[in-house]
Design a protein around this nucleic acid. Sequence first.
DNA 1: ATCGCAATTAAGTTTAGACATATATCCGAT
DNA 2: ATCGGATATATGTCTAAACTTAATTGCGAT
Lengths: 235, 235
Amino acid sequence: MTDRPAPTSKAQAIVNEVRRRIVDREWQQGDRIPDEAELAVEFGAARATVNKALQLLAEEGLLDRKRRAGTHVTVNPARRATLTIPIVREQVEAAGLAYSHRIVAQKLSPLPADVAARMALPEGHELIHLRTVHYGDDTPFQVEDRWLNPAAAPGVERIDFHRINPNEWLVRNFPWLRADMAFSAASADARDARLLECRQGTALLILQRTTFNDLGAITSVRLAFHPGYQLIATP
Amino acid sequence: MTDRPAPTSKAQAIVNEVRRRIVDREWQQGDRIPDEAELAVEFGAARATVNKALQLLAEEGLLDRKRRAGTHVTVNPARRATLTIPIVREQVEAAGLAYSHRIVAQKLSPLPADVAARMALPEGHELIHLRTVHYGDDTPFQVEDRWLNPAAAPGVERIDFHRINPNEWLVRNFPWLRADMAFSAASADARDARLLECRQGTALLILQRTTFNDLGAITSVRLAFHPGYQLIATP
DNA sequence: ATCGCAATTAAGTTTAGACATATATCCGAT
DNA sequence: ATCGGATATATGTCTAAACTTAATTGCGAT
């Protein structure tokens, strides 16, 4: 039931064994561990394989590696977590609900200062401003407040977002090179409350994201999730 | 000013070029791209190098790779973001503030149902319960509500957490094998408000984390950040 | 002692080749 | 036409060897 035969690669086996030694404190925080050549002999593997394994553990934050100085067990591991930001529709459907969305507003508007700063565009510059509500079984799931830059996403002016939601269209048509992303909490304002069908002042999880390609900022969006929503991270 | 000489490896150069082709839509979503052997010839590299580059892009979510079927540009890329959860003290000090912490409460208490479930321990089981406030320049930065399991972290009963904060001690002494982590938003309750010196009902970003080693759950903690706090993710 | 340079070391990267493995595709038997 | 098995193919993984590069260490001159 809990035994796994051997579905792992040699590199992964080395990762597991090294991680075990660290967790079991055979190798303590700050200790220097044997170098790649020694471990290669011990594990009966090529140095390249050991190298790959140790690089994975270094990415994970468990090891510190430096040329000439060797590999040490990280003293204060600031561990990372990976968040997968799925397409809303897929997220809703994965929960077994029927997805739908509604465009609440769509018009050309001058950029407010904060969004302009995030998009590295002049304040007052006119962009497409969209407000969308995403539903699961007719219950509001997420409210999206989005600014779209036709200069970086040519063709966007002619899309009918009632048929395909903005995120999905963008993701399919304009892969980005760089993204800024931040999580925060905010109290639902009057509009949030109306669209999410919750009481004003309710605490909402907010995801603010701006994406760029080589033509500049594609879009900047503020996502407000329904009250109680939890974003799960995978280590 | 914007030209970079050549600080990148060959594999990284391939990553960049393939990413460029995708972003510039030379290779469109769903397209099959040339196989590793062909790209190796084109880029004048070994297949292993191309393989490494394409695996990085697959991890990033831009490519889908399958044996025999080849490599395709992902149609609906659900892109990932990495969050680094730093040690509070380092985070505060990085902001140029003086760090301090205060243990508000520390006692043996029976586990409430929700925490027990997260830690996979029986409800009512007695664990060490700690409440800590972390300050930057005497302004509350984060409130920590933590349960500690001496069975998985032997020695924890004898630690004086007034001298070193619980997170830092754990991180230095008990590396974990697995962690569950979730972000959410909550309204400050009376205690949160008092400890964070904010108004009750203020929206707070909450990070809930439980860590495990091979002895079981080490600790489960609820971190409430000060109002307005933004958690920045790196792509 | 102190400084600066040179030697040495350990990780970083790449390569060519080999074998493993999943699976799309083809083809022949039904 | 349909099914099943053989085949081909693209990725997955590993290896041994070489070269590169960062940086610690040690040494020699001051």
